[in-house]
Nucleic acid binder design. Structure first.
Length: 418
RNA sequence: GGAGCGGUGGCUGAGUGGUCGAAAGCGGCAGUUUGCUAAACUGUUGUACUAGGUAACUGGUACCGAGGGUUCGAAUCCCUCCUGCUCCGCCA
């Protein structure tokens, strides 16, 4: 959530509007100012009347104590009408507040000045490339063709059990993904991340806290009966670990990680990447999350990105770091670098990690603060990124380690993981 | 799932209709004393919103698990929900 105090000044409002314009999302722009003003005005009115009631109620207490029955009765009669009016006003206030939150909760984060301008992903900027595009003496097949031919992934039975975009891993590939999880976790542990095992099913407040709700509710699996959602990313439970808490400055930065399954409905992706392991309803990944002081967030964001890159480097995968442009940025993020690996079989770049600095946007929603050096409670900054998506990593390794006869060079993969 | 008892400030814990943002203790912070530490003593110590002020701050509103209700007035009375503990049942 953006700081709504910004809406109260001309300067702040302009900052918000400018950011919205850069994102190409001006849906809420017109309402913002009026909705904020209406809220302030209504609150002022209610508070004035509540003050009146409190003063007179106190007086009633005194009158009663003094035994002045006639005055007591007279005042009580007039206060009845005040109480009635206050009740009506408070109901109005609740509606105004609800509307205010409805609008505010759908306003995306302010963009960092360093985010390049652009309409969509074509305007994203490649920051750097690591490794060469690998050359093969034969035509490299997409991972799903090899996987199916080798009996590694059973897409048909995945569909039978759960529907499209579900799959069953057989034997070696199941073991590979499990080993990759260990590989990544061990590497990140050495870099200072503390491991967590978290709930995979979360309350609506958590989904709101990290920004999935309310605007994108359709994209997630939610169990109506329980009011709980399957996590779309480990970011949700991991970040909400500190929801509603005030941390001390000395504990920061906090770096956490978790290996979790992720569940996504992929609404609106019908017909896109229908084959293979690239776009599925359930996949596993390691998530990295940092809680940091505002002054450290840029540095820590770059570090987290480097930590994610370290996995790709270690496995010898060719990748590039891409700065998302203003029009391609996620709702909650202030600035994002995507890591895209080259897929020799698919013959394209594939996102395998997205490292974002959310600044205080999530912290404000989830109410995560820390006591700063001046002794004031302040929203901290959250940063997260995949470190990295395991399913896509498996897909990549299958493509990188194909042999001319359509096999997989398992020995080469083993060697990397050793 | 059944029965019983609870949920109050950073923590422990008092408060059962008005003077309660809430006793007391612990902890934290500042100071006095002290060669240093400790101890003792004194003061101070919640959050959000709102109005004013460059600001330190000052006034107001709200918050005693959450949401409703009764009342001129609710931490206190009523209802619903959530949650913790103990016992029983069930279960990996």
């Amino acid at each position: 959530m953006i700081d709504f105090q910004l809406l109260k000044t001309e300067e702040g409002l302009n900052r918000v509007l400018k950011s919205l314009a850069r994102r190409g999302d001006t849906s809420a722009a017109a309402e913002l100012k009026t909705v904020a003003e209406k809220r302030s005005a209504t609150i002022r009115e209610v508070e004035a009347l509540a003050n009146e009631r409190n003063v007179q109620s106190k007086k009633l207490g005194e009158l009663k104590a003094q035994g002045k029955e006639a005055e007591f009765d007279a005042l009580r009669e007039t206060m009845k009408t005040v109480a009635d009016r206050l009740k009506v006003l408070k109901e109005q206030e609740a509606k105004v507040e609800e509307n205010f939150l409805h609008v505010l909760a759908r306003v995306p984060n302010l963009l960092d000045d360093k985010v390049p301008d652009g309409k969509d992903e074509h305007a994203n900027v490649v920051v750097r490339k690591e490794g060469e595009i690998p050359q093969f003496a034969f035509d490299v097949k997409p991972h799903y063709e090899v996987a199916e031919a080798q009996g590694l992934v059973d897409f048909e039975r995945g569909v039978k059990i759960s529907g499209a975009r579900f799959y069953v891993y057989n034997e070696r590939i199941a073991r590979l993904e499990r080993r990759l999880a260990n590989y990544m976790l061990d590497k990140h542990a050495a870099a200072g991340y503390s491991e967590r095992m978290v709930p995979l099913v979360v309350k609506d407040e958590c989904m709101f806290g990290t920004g999935q709700f309310p605007k994108f509710a359709d994209e997630y699996y939610r169990m109506e009966k329980d009011g709980l959602s399957l996590i779309p990313t480990g970011e949700v439970p991991l970040t909400n670990i500190y929801a509603d808490e005030i941390l001390s400055e000395t504990e920061l930065p906090i770096s956490l990680m978790a290996f979790t399954p992720c569940f996504r409905r992929e609404a609106g992706s019908a017909g896109k990447d229908t084959r293979g392991l690239v776009r599925v309803h359930q996949f596993y990944k390691v998530e990295l999350v940092k809680f940091v002081r505002p002054e450290d967030s840029e540095r820590e964001w770059l570090r987290l990105t480097a930590d994610a890159e370290n996995i790709l480097k270690g496995l010898g995968l060719t990748y590039r770091v891409v700065a998302l442009c203003s029009g391609d940025m996620g709702f909650t993020s202030s600035i994002t670098y995507d890591l895209e690996i080259w897929m020799p079989g698919l013959k394209r770049w594939l996102e395998i990690s997205s490292c974002s600095n959310f600044k205080d946007f999530q912290a404000r929603r989830a109410k995560i603060r820390y006591k700063n050096a001046a002794g004031k409670n302040e929203y901290l900054h959250t940063i997260n990124g995949s470190g990295v998506a395991a399913g896509r990593l498996v897909a990549a390794l299958l493509e990188y380690h194909q042999t001319a006869d359509g096999n997989i060079d398992w020995a080469a993969i083993e060697k990397k993981l050793a």
